[in-house]
């Protein structure tokens, strides 16, 4: 039985009212292929998925274990909604909630942001249910990923849940498990972008005797290949992350992707800690469904964001420096 639909929405939190807007380009990207004629939950889900694929974490922020010192909070919480544009897509729980709330209001879905504790998420009403949307919380499932990361690995979201009254109290049920009639186009977004090519390849496999030989590399070799590819390039942060995710999708099968987990560790850097994000592959990770262990780096690890990318940018600056040195030499020679 749905919980709380008869209650006023303001009993769950505060309405978010703003005069600031994200950039036009950003709005266009989030509202891409919106099922306008469908039900409210389909619209909300589509907005949720699109927004998550557009945003990355602010480097200094992690949903759990966030630094709550006044300096850090004021620095990061004072970010305005209109500071988002195509180049600068970083988010923390508060800015994520504000953005999602902004887009729901824009599409006439009643919503509030919770005002309890430090963590922020969005509550909204749609199709007879009260939903909780939280993309910046690590889920206690075996993947240990928040929806910001999941969206980029083309995995279904786990953070959009409905409040359901049961004998044991209120429980959160995933929107996909409610049996709602969701718009057909929503699921397609997860593999939409490679549809045509894959369709043709399937045709190639069906109609001809193509693909008898099977190239089976072990996982470690695939990881090495990715690292090898990355080392040859200089990556800037957002496009770099998209590139890495793309490589992961190309190199690993859907079954292998299930064993991927998102993890992080802290590294001391002078007076402060830096968060290094890691993609971990562990064949036994399914068995640890209930075990919520942050420092589990068994299996193969792969640097997703953090130190790795920083090293590449260092290399980039070195290249620029070398180039400018060359110019200096030329100038000196010319002046002789």
């Amino acid at each position: 039985m749905p919980y709380g639909y008869d209650k006023p929405i303001t009993s769950f939190g505060k309405k978010f009212i703003t005069t600031a807007h994200p950039s036009k380009n950003f709005i266009k990207r989030v509202e891409r292929n919106l099922p306008v004629n469908s039900n409210e939950s389909s619209i909300a889900l589509k907005l949720y998925n699109n927004l998550n694929s557009c945003l990355v974490y602010n480097e200094e922020f992690v949903a759990f274990n966030q630094d709550i010192s006044i300096g850090f909070m004021s620095k990061i919480y004072n970010k305005q909604i209109n500071e988002f544009n195509v180049q600068d897509n970083d988010a923390i729980c508060k800015s994520w909630a504000e953005l999602f709330s902004y887009f729901l209001t824009r599409n006439n879905i009643e919503n509030v942001i919770n005002d309890m504790a430090f963590h922020r998420y969005v509550i909204f009403k749609a199709d007879g249910y009260v939903f909780k949307a939280d993309a910046t919380e690590l889920k206690e499932s075996y993947t240990k990923m928040d929806d910001l990361t999941r969206a980029k690995l083309q995995l279904k979201p786990e953070g959009l849940t409905a409040l359901i009254q049961t004998e044991n109290g209120v429980e959160y049920v995933n929107i996909y498990d409610l049996g709602l009639h969701l718009d057909e186009n929503i699921d397609l977004t997860f593999d939409n972008f490679q549809n045509k090519t894959n369709m043709l390849i399937n045709k190639l496999k069906e109609e001809t005797n193509f693909g008898k030989k099977y190239y089976e590399d072990d996982i470690e070799e695939k990881f090495n290949l990715i690292n090898e590819l990355l080392q040859e390039e200089t990556l800037d942060s957002l496009a770099g992350i998209q590139y890495i995710n793309n490589l992961i999708r190309m190199f690993f099968s859907n079954d292998e992707l299930k064993h991927f987990t998102y993890n992080y560790y802290k590294e001391k850097e002078g007076n402060r800690y830096r968060i290094i994000e890691v993609i971990n592959y562990n064949e036994n990770s399914k068995a640890k469904e209930t075990d919520f262990d942050y420092d589990n780096f068994e299996g193969i690890n792969f640097i997703y964001r953090g130190k790795g990318l920083e090293e590449y940018s260092k290399r980039k600056t070195r290249k620029i420096k070398e180039a400018s040195d060359k110019i200096d030499e030329e100038v000196i020679e010319r002046n002789r």
């Binding site: 972008f193 490679q194 045509k196 090519t197 894959n198 043709l200 390849i201 190639l204 193509f210 693909g211 030989k213 099977y214 190239y215 793309n246 190309m250 190199f251 099968s253």
Partner: peptide, 18 residues
């Protein structure tokens, strides 16, 4: 397949190698 400039980013590695 090759009509699409980015086709190699859309297919699995093994298919591309084939």
């Amino acid at each position: 397949i090759f009509e699409d400039e980015g086709c190699f980013f859309k297919m699995k590695r093994e298919d591309a190698l084939h």
